[in-house]
Structures are given as structure tokens and as C-alpha cells.
Amino acid sequence: MSNPLQRPSGPAPRDADQAAARVRIRHFSKSLPMSLLKAREAVMRHFRASLRRFGITEQQWRVLRALTSGETFEVTELAEATFLLAPSLSRILKDLDERGLILRRASPTDLRRGIVSISPLGLELIARAGTESEAIYREITGRYGSERLAELQSLLRQLEECLDGPEIAG
């Protein structure tokens, strides 16, 4: 069985144009997933130092922020809301629980299901870190413009809604 990522044998292409001619695919710089990742990285670069000062990772912040939007979450709902895989979320919840930033309990209707909420200590951390986060948002808004940022967020929501549903067949 051949490996689809293995380089084909034979001479290497002389330049990128020859490679592009062989493979009918858009240029890497025009890749939507890569453009979104690059934009995310540009944004997150401004938040990482602040998160480190508060001793939390990007994923932990994501979980804590999600927990501030509702009273409680079932673990599976939280995984969906934060776009984290269950094993990763499990490790994150364990750490946040040990630090007293969240409260965990079993569902009263189904003891196999976990319920998570943010603790008073977690809310305190969000309030402190949130002040810095909002300052970073103000800086980003100042550089990019409030109207453009609102438009970008609207366009991203529209893209998400448009693509929500069955996968596109390839």
C-alpha cells in the first residue's frame, strides 16, 4: 500500500511552476484554511503574553470564557462549544478543577454525564484577565477599525452558516 504523503520517485520539479502545472490545485497562499490559520495566529500573538501572565493556556481561556456564557455545560456541550476534542478537554478540565477555577459534578438525571460550571475563583480570574483582554481588543480595533472588525466578524459568521450542514463532496 503506498503512502499518499510519500514523495514520488523520479526527478524533483525544477520550480514551483512545474509543480503547479502537475497538480491542479490553488496556490498555497490562496488556501482558505491557511488564510484563516494565519489570521488566527496574527490575532493570538497579541493575547498569548497576557494569558501566560495569568498562568493559563489558550485552550484553558477558551473553556473559561465559554463557561462565563452560561450557568452550566454538559462536558459534551462544552467540547462542541470550544472546538476541543474530548481527550484534550478532559485534561484541561482536570487542571482547571485542581486549580479551583471550575466546579464539576455529575448530572442529576444521568450520573455518567458530567456538568461543569465556572467557580468564583474562575470568575475572578476572568475579570482580571478580561481587563487586559479588552485592552488588546481596543488596540486591535484601533489598528483595524471598528467597522472593518464588525464586518469581518459578520462575514465569518456568514461563512460558518453557509458551510454548516453536510460536508462538501470532493
Rank of each mutant, 00 (worst) to 15 (best):
P11N: 01
T131M: 04
A169H: 05
P120R: 07
E160L: 07
W61A: 13
T76D: 06
L37C: 15
Q6H: 10
Q153N: 13
V63K: 02
R112T: 06
R26Q: 14
E58Y: 11
S35D: 14
S133F: 13
D17C: 10
W61D: 06
R48C: 14
R26C: 15
L37Q: 15
L103W: 04
P4M: 02
P108T: 02
H46T: 09
L96D: 01
T68F: 05
T76S: 13
S119H: 04
S2A: 08
L51W: 15
L5Y: 06
I140W: 08
R22M: 09
R104M: 02
E160Y: 10
K30Y: 15
T72A: 08
R105H: 03
P87W: 01
L5D: 04
F54D: 06
L32D: 15
G70P: 06
R105S: 11
R7T: 09
S119E: 05
S117L: 02
W61H: 03
Y137C: 12
E41V: 13
R128T: 10
L123M: 09
K38I: 13
K94Y: 14
E77R: 06
S35H: 12
E71T: 15
A12C: 07
A20T: 05
V43E: 08
D17E: 10
E167M: 10
A135C: 04
A79N: 01
R148E: 15
L85G: 11
S69Q: 14
S31I: 03
L101F: 05
A169C: 12
L51I: 07
Q59F: 11
E160D: 13
V75Q: 13
Q158V: 05
A19T: 05
R65Q: 14
E124K: 07
R40S: 11
Q153R: 12
I25T: 14
L149G: 07
R157W: 06
E74K: 12
P13I: 06
S133T: 09
S90Q: 12
S90I: 01
L51K: 05
G165S: 04
F28V: 15
E147D: 13
L5E: 02
I126C: 02
E80F: 05
M1I: 10
F47D: 03
A86Q: 07
S107E: 03
G10Y: 00
P33M: 06
D95M: 03
L111K: 08
M34H: 13
D15S: 11
Q60R: 10
L123D: 02
L51F: 11
L152R: 12
D95H: 02
H27K: 12
L103A: 06
A169D: 09
Y144L: 15
A86V: 13
S107P: 01
E58M: 13
R52M: 04
R45M: 14
L152K: 08
R14A: 11
L67Q: 03
L85R: 15
P4F: 00
K94R: 14
L36I: 12
P120H: 01
S146F: 11
T72Q: 09
A79P: 00
T57Y: 07
R48Q: 09
L37D: 06
L96R: 00
